[in-house]
């Protein structure tokens, strides 16, 4: 478990990062916390002749809470999400989800930017960000552009970000209503067997709006518009939840692995979503 030799770059600002990326093309890759990238390099599944460490690049570690949105810098760690008090008050789902990622050691290193840019269907934050309708800001040789989280993921490890672009921040509209991040895993430090992110609004006993996204049940996160549609306008009773689960099952496409066969994963996805909806609704 030793990576192939690589050149280590430690630029001091974004311009320098982009210059190294431009110079080495797809031979170069940025590293944030390194807790997805380094294991892949050690297994020699990722070949990165030029590794660009982002940790000295300023301005990527802020959490700004505005009147109607939250901006999280790409290098904010999962631990920082958990510890940030203001964030816990305005967007508690972030904390609930982050606490279910990996273990404390990994969370001290792993970043929001790395987690969403990685493109691994097992990562929890992509689904979470789709649920929250986040926007990812990337910067490249052509300047800055925004990509909605719901349009970012194309296939496993394939995203709308170009190789020469760097993700700088994630912007989330202030979430409203009840929330839940529900995840089943085999043990601490494991990726999800199935996970569901739900943010739901209650208007006098009727569901006014809801967003639902699922994790590790397809080669990308699954934002299930249909599942949400099944709940809006209902009292979120058993019939409505059943319809939402059925709609979600139409959107996911899990594969068999050591966590279990497809039938099991679909069943658990349904159970997890039901629990997430019920918990979120109870908080709405």
């Amino acid at each position: 478990m030793i990576p192939a030799a690589f050149e280590y770059h430690r630029p001091q600002d974004m311009a320098e990062v982009l210059a190294v990326l431009e110079e080495h093309g797809d031979e170069a890759r940025v590293m944030a916390g390194g807790h997805s990238l380094i294991p892949m390099m050690k297994l020699r599944m990722a070949d990165v002749p030029h590794l660009i460490d982002l940790q000295d690049v300023g301005g990527l570690s802020n959490i700004d809470i505005g009147d109607d949105s939250i901006r999280i810098g790409a290098m904010v760690t999962q631990a920082a999400i958990i510890d940030h008090e203001g964030l816990g008050a305005v967007a508690p789902i972030l904390r609930e989800a982050a606490l279910q990622i990996a273990d404390p050691q990994v969370r001290y290193m792993g970043t929001v930017g790395g987690n969403v840019a990685n493109g691994d269907p097992g990562n929890d934050m992509p689904g979470l960000m789709q649920c929250l309708d986040a926007t990812f800001t990337v910067v490249g040789p052509e300047g800055e552009r925004d990509i909605p989280a719901r349009e970012f993921y194309e296939a496993a490890y394939m995203t709308a970000r170009e190789d020469d672009e760097v993700l700088t921040s994630v912007t989330i509209p202030l979430p409203r209503g009840g929330y839940a991040y529900e995840k089943q895993k085999r043990k601490i430090g494991d990726y999800a067997t199935a996970a569901a992110a739900v943010q739901i609004e209650n208007d006098g006993g009727t569901c006014a709006s809801v967003a639902i996204a699922m994790t590790n049940l397809s080669d990308t996160p699954v934002y299930s518009e249909a599942a949400g549609a099944a709940l809006v306008g209902t009292s979120v009773d058993d019939v409505a939840i059943k319809a939402a689960v059925a709609a979600m099952l139409g959107d996911i496409d899990p594969t068999e692995d050591n966590r279990g066969p497809v039938a099991f994963k679909k069943h658990v996805a349904g159970v997890i979503l039901r629990r997430a909806i019920e918990r979120a609704w109870s908080r709405a």
Binding site: Q184, R259, G260, A263, H267, V268
Partner: peptide, 16 residues
Amino acid sequence: HDHWRIWRTANELGLH
């Protein structure tokens, strides 16, 4: 007895 095998037992016994 990992999660899916326990689930399979329940499933085969008709508990779902």
